[in-house]
Design a protein around this nucleic acid. Structure first.
Lengths: 352, 352
DNA sequence: ATTGAGCGTGAGAGCGCTCTCACAATCCGT
DNA sequence: ACGGATTGTGAGAGCGCTCTCACGCTCAAT
């Protein structure tokens, strides 16, 4: 066995195919076949080889394998989020968990990339384009992100999570933001709200735009006009939501229902309503989005739209693996359904 | 240039050292020296080679390099957290961000591993022990995690983040949980609280134990006795904190100060105090821990202990890189300072 | 002039694996 | 019993890189 002198004086032993082969009395090629599950190995030989592998604790060397197969066995996951949502919302841990379980089932490594600056993004793009990974998952792209273009040019398969504003027709997994928002607003209308306002997300993010459209859809469904004065835009944060609610109370004191495009904004709105002496849900019914932990932390607890985030990660990984392994060049788009979670802030369950 | 037929019909070109060498009119070895920054290359040759590299867009093949250097160029980061804290606290995104920036500056890949079950943990251990990474970072180990043992046996360098309960004397980075808790409780005492209770974290986690000890320290500093009835244990969650506060109000209605070992528990306690008609901070002053987003979301905002989490990630990476690259077998332990953030829940800034 | 050190460069081996191809052994149908 | 298909196995090339070693050159010291 090769003695690999570790840098700290300890010694690590490494077993090679060759050694397994000689112990089992077969050739390297045969051991390779056993390791890779080829069917063309007789049962007795297979048994002997497996015994030798177990006895020696053999583990294939990934680098050597990659060198010849031209596959790295790893997938890049890019999270290019400038701290804001990254640090206030458990979205990314959940997404990563979903991706991780799907990839490890395929014995693929998850290489995490978190560019923190435009220069970083450039380096990330270089890294991915250099072919160091077999494919990439791009989460929460912002408007002008150069990554998709670079990937296309480099010919690296990738899947985008969350619809980017500038949709390029690439493979995509998203949650049904529009449908979720629509059901949230429909719920407020069904509950009896006459003036339903919305605190929309940023207009430069797919989720922001889609949820606003869902709001419009629901009003249309109920044959109501969309009034500009009832639409305020914020940045998904607590402070932004509070400010937007303040503006709303000033311009439209008659609102009796608010759909906030994130729980954080809903919480901010809640604080402002509270301070203004408006009771929730009696005077103003409130619905958030994301069903984040904060939704069940504030009082009253927030009715909110739950998204299948882990499933989204799963699905992204599944699509990418299909693109990498299969000869399937088809662009696929998956939209996952959301679920409205009814809590006290909108008067709980729908009143008949 | 080698034509690499991508599986989707597109074609990718790959440049090798050999091609760069022939274009620059030198040998492979010389190009290798330029790429790796060896000083033994004459300026003119270096210039020619660099020009050829740029012209061909050459990028070294990591697999081939790994095969001979016996370094993978990647670091495993293990987050073995069973969903609870993972999804409610931005701890991990921040830690990952810190680790990521430190590693990418060294051109090391971050391979993320998120075992979701004991079987998964076993596979993760196998993976790491097989030497597929140059080292590992283990975040938030739980009591009986088999990882450290396996790593030691396999001779893979690693650094632990957050003191595990069963401390094995390995390299470690932690925040000063004990000191942070101590300063939080000292703050309550200085503010004039006479009966300071604590809602402690789980006794099977280092952070839980350390923060409880910090509570004891502060009482001792003030020459006060530690009363068991003033110590309730919970699981770091909102619900747990609420339940603990409920018990506390029943057994010790005279409490006028509470130190909760997490913001989530503090928020739960706040809701219960509210419901019980106790005003915060006037009747009961409250301090949390983590300075998570929720601390500034609830009303009144929570005084809390802020931890330098990104720095923790940085430091972990730094230590590991030193262990991997240097011939430094020394076990190092770094404890990072915390900071008390004063807000309304404890009456704001210290009253003179 | 002669030696030796020093420096830049090239030749070539080899890292551990996969995969093609050739070959030997077995099987079938006639 | 015989040719041809089928099956399991081994030999060997080669993936792209690093690294050791030898070689030729220059230059200072003798």
């Amino acid at each position: 066995m090769a003695q690999l002198a570790a840098r700290n004086g300890r010694t690590r032993t490494v077993t090679t195919l060759e050694e397994v082969a000689s112990r089992a009395g077969v050739s390297r090629a045969t051991v390779s076949r056993v390791v890779n599950g080829s069917p063309k190995v007789s049962p007795d030989v297979r048994r002997d080889v497996e015994a030798a592998i177990a006895a020696l604790g053999y583990v294939p060397n990934r680098a050597a394998r990659s060198l010849v197969t031209r596959r790295s066995g790893s997938i890049g996951v890019v999270i290019s989020e400038p701290a804001g949502r990254l640090f206030s919302d458990p979205f990314f841990p959940r997404l990563l968990r979903g991706i991780s379980t799907a990839l490890s089932a395929r014995d693929l490594q998850l290489v995490l990339l978190m560019p923190a600056s435009p220069a970083d993004t450039e380096r990330t793009a270089d890294y991915l384009a250099a072919g160091h990974v077999d494919g990439a998952l791009l989460a929460s792209l912002h408007g002008d992100d150069p990554l998709p273009d670079r990937m296309v040019r480099a010919g690296i398969p990738f899947v985008v999570g969350g619809r980017p504003l500038r949709d390029m027709g690439t493979s995509l997994v998203d949650v049904d933001n529009r449908g979720g928002a629509r059901s949230a607003v429909a719920h407020l209308i069904a509950r009896g709200c006459r003036r339903v306002a919305t605190i929309a997300g940023p207009a430069d993010m797919g989720a922001g735009v889609d949820r606003l459209n869902g709001y419009r859809d629901a009003l249309g469904d109920a044959n109501r006009a969309v009034e500009d004065r009832l639409i305020e835009t914020a940045d998904f944060t607590h402070e932004g939501g509070a400010a937007a609610m303040g503006r709303l109370l000033k311009t439209s004191p008659d609102v009796d229902g608010v759909f906030a495009a994130s729980d954080l904004m809903a919480a901010g709105a809640l604080a402002v309503l509270d301070a203004a002496g408006r009771r929730v849900p009696d005077d103003v019914a409130l619905v958030g989005y994301d069903d984040s932990p904060i939704a069940s932390t504030v009082r009253p607890q927030l009715t909110s739209v739950r998204q299948p985030i882990e499933e989204m990660g799963h699905e992204m990984a599944r699509l990418l693996v299909a693109a990498v392994e299969g000869d399937d060049p088809i662009q696929r788009r998956v939209i996952l359904a959301t679920e409205l979670i009814r809590r006290a802030s909108s008067g709980g369950r729908r009143q008949p």
